[in-house]
Amino acid sequence: MRHVLIADVEDQPGVLNRIASLFRRRAYNIESLAVGHSHRPGISRMTIVVAEDHKEAIQVAKQLDKLIEVISVTDVTEQRHVSREMALAKIAAPEMKRTEILQLANVYRAQVVDVSPGSIILEVTGDEDKIDSFVEIIRPYGILELSRTGEVAMVRGRAMPAPTLMAEDGPAA
């Protein structure tokens, strides 16, 4: 199963290295990892999607939390949360196909961010499923390049991600 973890970490050189080293050493299956500044100065937020069962996901979270520079880790999989990723897709778009492509883009609320002779770049945002399906739909038109960001996630409502780790026998409340 897929688990979505949110980790707040010190914004310091080497943090990513420690986290990557941990994942490598313990052979955790990481689907995606997105990192950027958070609203708090000096703290970066990471969203990590792991393809592990519940027990392993708990281990990932606990091992992450042991890193000194990791301030908190939460598994938000079972919490109400939104998650988004973004993709940029460069599509071979011959004159005659453009309208068709733009119509599809419209369905996915994708933005056109570049138009060049023979190609266009579309930007699409959404959850993983939406991006996957978008990619499949436009594939026949010829994808020249594809860049995806990996997922970022946030818990709905006023609640912050619950600060405690998950209980042993069930997902976090």
Partner: peptide
């Protein structure tokens, strides 16, 4: 003392 040891190798009834 290490939370990561609880449940790592064996399933515990009380950790």
């Amino acid at each position: 003392i290490d939370p990561a040891e609880i449940g790592k190798n064996v399933n515990t009834d009380v950790g």
